[in-house]
Amino acid sequence: TTLTVNTQTYTFTSEEEAREFARRYGAKTIRKTNGTWEVHG
Rank of each mutant, 00 (worst) to 15 (best):
T1I: 10
T1H: 12
T1F: 09
T1D: 13
T2V: 09
T2Q: 14
L3C: 15
L3M: 13
T4Y: 05
T4F: 05
T4N: 14
V5T: 12
V5C: 15
V5L: 08
V5H: 14
N6R: 03
N6G: 11
N6H: 10
N6T: 11
N6E: 13
T7M: 11
T7Y: 12
T7S: 10
T7R: 05
Q8I: 12
Q8F: 09
Q8K: 11
T9G: 06
T9K: 09
T9S: 08
Y10F: 11
Y10N: 03
T11V: 12
F12L: 00
F12I: 00
F12Y: 00
F12W: 00
F12E: 00
T13P: 06
T13A: 11
T13L: 09
T13Y: 11
T13E: 11
S14H: 03
S14M: 03
S14R: 03
S14E: 05
S14D: 08
E15K: 02
E15F: 12
E15L: 09
E16H: 07
E16P: 03
E17F: 02
A18H: 00
R19P: 00
R19D: 08
R19Q: 08
E20M: 05
E20T: 02
E20R: 06
E20Q: 06
F21H: 06
F21C: 14
F21E: 01
A22F: 05
A22P: 00
A22W: 03
A22M: 07
R23W: 05
R23D: 13
R23S: 09
R24G: 03
R24W: 06
R24Y: 06
R24L: 11
R24N: 07
Y25M: 14
Y25L: 12
Y25N: 09
G26N: 07
G26F: 04
A27D: 04
A27M: 15
A27T: 06
A27F: 15
A27Q: 06
K28H: 15
K28A: 12
K28W: 06
K28T: 13
K28R: 07
T29F: 12
T29G: 05
I30Q: 03
I30S: 04
I30F: 04
I30V: 10
R31W: 06
R31M: 12
R31P: 05
K32F: 14
K32A: 09
T33R: 10
T33G: 10
N34Y: 01
N34R: 02
N34V: 02
G35A: 03
G35E: 06
G35L: 04
T36Y: 13
T36Q: 11
T36L: 14
T36R: 08
T36G: 14
T36H: 11
W37M: 01
W37Q: 00
E38H: 03
E38I: 10
V39H: 01
V39D: 00
G41A: 12
G41K: 08
G41T: 15
G41E: 06
